[in-house]
Amino acid sequence: MASIIGHNPHSNSIGYSFSQPTNAGNKEHSFYPYTDNGGSVLGITGKDFAVLAGDTRSTSGYNINSRYVPKVFKIGGDQETGEGAHILLSVVGFAADGLALKERLDAVVKMYKYQHGKPMSVRACAQRLSTILYGKRFFPYYVQAILAGLDEEGKGALYGYDPVGSYEREQCRAAGAASSLIMPFLDNQVNLKNQYIPGSGEGHALEAKKPEPMPRDTVEQVVRDAFTSAVERHIEVGDGLQMLIITADGIEEIYHPLKKD
């Protein structure tokens, strides 16, 4: 009976295991080189500053790896302290790729300074980051990056990226697990989308509110509100909020606890 079940039309010959013809083609690779470490980041610019913030939770699946793994980095500064940095980078998605990307950009910015004797501009750094990401177009860094700094005029500058290097300068950007929750809130509160000046007209004549650069304390409050909201409704966001603020005077870091559930 078993011989009927075990019958294989290809094995009419005797069973020398090593003389078996190898008809197995290319074996499918079952190793998946990516994972999602969750978390969210968000950046907002002001007149003379830029804020980059991210939660500090690291997850894999339903596990919390750690409650403090920073996602926002200083670029071009000292390895340990970050002193002397003039650019901020946040990466969210696959943390190992994020770290590798950060270290490559950091090296590039440092080499630029050694070779040209001046710090790299944010605009140049933004273009370079795009090139780095596109360089791995067919095995991408699985990250959404946000770059922040001050532009040539001293205004806050913020650049948002997709994993393969498409980028755009923006006033504000959310990325990561809870970006779909945070971004519409930012549209409404920072870019004043769907807000009109009361009594300015009827129907199409109604005048839309114009977004103005916000003062720093307002921006910090919006960032905190965005994250406390995201923590309520997204399981991969929580534990702590790390906020880096870049001004002409340097980079300031604020840590703010978030719910740990």
Partner: peptide, 10 residues
């Protein structure tokens, strides 16, 4: 082979 099927020599 007739009992256990052909040996997987891959």
């Amino acid at each position: 082979d007739d009992v256990y099927g052909p040996y997987d020599a891959s």
